[in-house]
């Protein structure tokens, strides 16, 4: 592998931690521990994003994954149940079969992925790099990610905002935003 840099060694560290946490989450039945480990998983993923050169994504993932998701999962856990039932043998084997089938499929496709970290792959020479070249002339702001997000792909971002809006409305409809009206609901 040519041109590898120091971040590769960080990669191995993060891989080991993520795999360990993922397998622990599967084994645990106590939902509180599972939720907390999910927050840790997101935080380590955010650290990996920094090492991969995606600072914007890392900020968002740290705030969302380790902050909001954990709070929401905790709230949902407190409103529902604290323990999960142990996995039955049938489910375990069924899941393993599905996982093996999907795993074989994705690993068959592994060879078609671009070489890790190379600058001359199709993925890294197309529109992404063109955005870097054009941003100083056309948008003239330092952060290319913001330029692409808000200007070049503004239509896409607008769709995402509407999806977030729709999800917010959905939760408000399901859970009754203001917290009132529980009585009327019971009276049915």
């Amino acid at each position: 592998m040519t041109g590898a840099d120091i971040t590769q060694y960080f990669d191995y560290l993060f891989m080991v931690m993520l795999l360990f946490i993922g397998l622990t989450i599967i084994r645990l039945q106590n939902l509180f521990a599972v939720v907390m480990l999910t927050g840790v998983y997101s935080l380590i993923a955010a650290a990996w994003f920094v090492s991969l050169g995606a600072a914007d994504v890392a900020i968002t993932e740290a705030a969302v994954g380790a902050g909001i998701s954990t709070v929401l999962l905790l709230a949902a856990m407190l409103l529902t149940a604290g323990e999960a039932k142990p996995t039955s043998a049938f489910r375990h084997w069924a899941a393993l079969v599905v996982m093996a089938a999907a795993g074989v499929a994705v690993f068959y496709a592994l060879g078609d992925l671009p070489v890790y970290g190379a600058a001359d792959t199709p993925a890294n020479t197309g529109p992404g790099m063109a955005y870097i070249e054009r941003t100083p002339d056309e948008i003239n702001i330092p952060n290319v990610v913001t330029a692409v997000l808000a200007s070049y792909r503004g239509f896409d971002t607008m769709g995402e905002v509407f999806v977030v809006f729709a999800a917010g409305v959905g939760v408000a409809l399901l859970l009754n935003l203001s917290g009132r009206g529980r009585r009327e609901e019971d009276g049915e």
């Binding site: 995606a54 994504v57 968002t60 929401l72 529902t80 955005y131 290319v144 399901l174 859970l175």
Partner: peptide, 30 residues
Amino acid sequence: YANPLPHVLILTAIVVGVATLAMGLALVVR
């Protein structure tokens, strides 16, 4: 520089992801 295009796609996907997670959890609570 790292390729900014996937960063943009994932940046928005993370926030949409938490919104859909909240939606799913709301259904679970109900």
